[in-house]
Design a protein around this nucleic acid. Structure first.
Lengths: 215, 215
DNA sequence: TTCTGAAAGATTGTATACATGTTCTTCTTG
DNA sequence: CAAGAAGAACATGTATACAATCTTTCAGAA
C-alpha cells in the first residue's frame, strides 16, 4: 500500500503532489518518460487518478505530452531557476507592498508566530523546519495581498524553487541572514509601511538569488 | 454533435478550451456550479474528459471544487483584472527586454507579418481580427524571451484578460493608438534595443489598463 | 406545526473495459 | 544479409460501471 487510506485527500491530489515533488526534487531525469500504466502499478492506483494528475502537471509545464509515448519530464533547469528569481524580484515586492496595506489581524498573528518559530529553529539549526516555515512565511504574505492572481503566481514560483531554497538553508551562515531579512519584512508589514516592506522584500529576493548563484 | 470529430485535439482539450472560454467571456455567473453530469450531457461526451478539464481549471483557480456539490465558477472580477494589469506592468517590460536581446530571425519575421496585418485590419476597422493579432503579437514576444516560466505566466494572464482587451478594441480611437504602441515595441525589438523595448512595453501596458479603467 | 430521522437522490471518486493509433519486433522474401 | 511487411505489444483516449459520501426530501411523531 502506497498512500495512507486515512488521508481524506483524493487519490488524484495525492498522486499529483507525489509526482510533482519527484520532479521538483529532481528524482527524475529531465527527459524521462512517465507512463500512466507504470505509474499506476508503482503507486498502486488505477490509471484514472494518474491521468488527472498528469493533466495538471502538463498545464503547469512540468511535463509535456508526447503522443503514444507518455509524458516527458521537464524539470527545473538552472536557467528556469534564474528566471524565477528575476520574476520574483519584479513582483514579490508588490506583494509585500499590498500585504502591508491590507493584512488583517489573523494573518499578522500567524506571521508573528512564524517569525518566532523561525528564531527557534535558527538557534536549533534545523534546515528542514526552516524551509517549511520560509514557505509558510511567504504564503501568508501572498494571501494577505488580497490578490488571487498574485498569490497564485507566487505560490507556484515558490513551489518550483523549493529544492533550491532548502539546500541554500543548509549552508552555515544563510539561516541567520535569512532570519534578519524576514524580520525586516515582517516589521514593515506589521507597522503597515508598504514602501519599506517592498524594499525589504526585494532585497530579500536578490539575496536569496545571489546566494543560490554561488555568491 | 457538439465538437468537430475531425479536429485531432483530444476531447479533454476541447472541453477545457470550451469551458474556459465560457468562464472568461462571462457566460457563467460567478458562483455558478458546474456539474460533471450536466456538462457531459450538454457537450455530448462522457464524464472522463469533463473531469480532466475541470481538474485543470481548478489548478488555474478559475473554479474551486466543492465536495459533492460540483465545482464553483470563480470568474475574473474587475479587481482581478486590475491586478493582472499591475502584474503585467511589472514583468512584461522584462519580457520585451529579453525578446530584444534574444529574438531569432523566424520570430522576427513572424512579428513583422503580424504588424503588417495589424495595419491592414486597423484600416479595415476589424476588432475581432485585431484582438487575435494582439494576442499573437504578445505571444511571439513571450516565446522569443527564451524563458519558459515567463512565457507561461504571461500567456495565462493574457488569456484571462482576453475579453477586456477585445471590448477595448471596439472603441473608436483605441485601434490606432494600439497600433502605434505595438509598432514602437516592434521597432525596439527589431533593432535589438532592450531598454527601449522595455520602456515601450511598459507604456503599452499602462495605456491598455487606463483605457480599460475608463481613462 | 415543528422536529427528527430514514430513505432516496445527486454528485464526485475510482476502477476497469474497450477503442484507436503508434511503435517495436520478428519473420519472410528478394 | 538486408529490407519490408505483418502482427504483437504498448500507449493513450474515451466510456461506463460501481462505490462512497453528502444533501435533500418526505413521512411520522411529539
Amino acid at each position: 500500500m502506497f498512500f495512507d487510506p486515512n488521508d481524506k485527500q483524493s487519490l488524484t491530489a495525492k498522486v499529483y503532489a507525489h509526482i510533482r515533488d519527484d520532479i521538483i526534487e529532481g528524482r527524475y531525469q529531465n527527459g524521462d518518460y512517465l507512463v500512466e500504466t507504470k505509474l499506476a502499478e508503482e503507486l498502486d492506483v488505477s490509471r484514472t487518478p494518474i491521468r488527472e494528475a498528469l493533466k495538471q502537471l502538463e498545464l503547469e509545464d512540468l511535463v509535456v505530452s508526447i503522443p503514444n509515448r507518455g509524458v516527458m519530464v521537464q524539470g527545473m533547469t538552472s536557467h528556469d531557476i534564474d528566471d524565477i528569481f528575476t520574476i520574483r524580484h519584479l513582483i514579490e515586492g508588490q506583494a509585500a507592498y499590498w500585504a502591508a496595506e491590507r493584512i488583517d489581524e489573523g494573518s499578522l498573528a500567524r506571521l508573528t508566530e512564524v517569525i518566532e518559530l523561525m528564531e527557534m529553529y535558527t538557534r536549533k539549526n534545523d534546515p528542514t523546519n526552516l524551509a517549511r516555515l520560509d514557505t509558510e512565511f511567504h504564503n501568508v504574505i501572498f494571501s494577505a495581498c488580497d490578490s488571487r492572481v498574485l498569490r497564485h503566481i507566487l505560490a507556484q514560483l515558490h513551489q518550483n524553487t523549493r529544492q533550491v531554497r532548502r539546500t541554500s538553508l543548509t549552508t552555515p551562515e544563510r539561516p541567520g541572514r535569512s532570519l534578519s531579512e524576514h524580520r525586516r519584512i515582517f516589521e514593515a508589514i506589521e507597522q503597515h509601511k508598504p514602501d519599506e516592506a517592498k524594499t525589504a522584500m526585494e532585497a530579500h529576493v536578490v539575496n536569496a538569488h545571489s546566494r543560490r548563484a554561488g555568491e
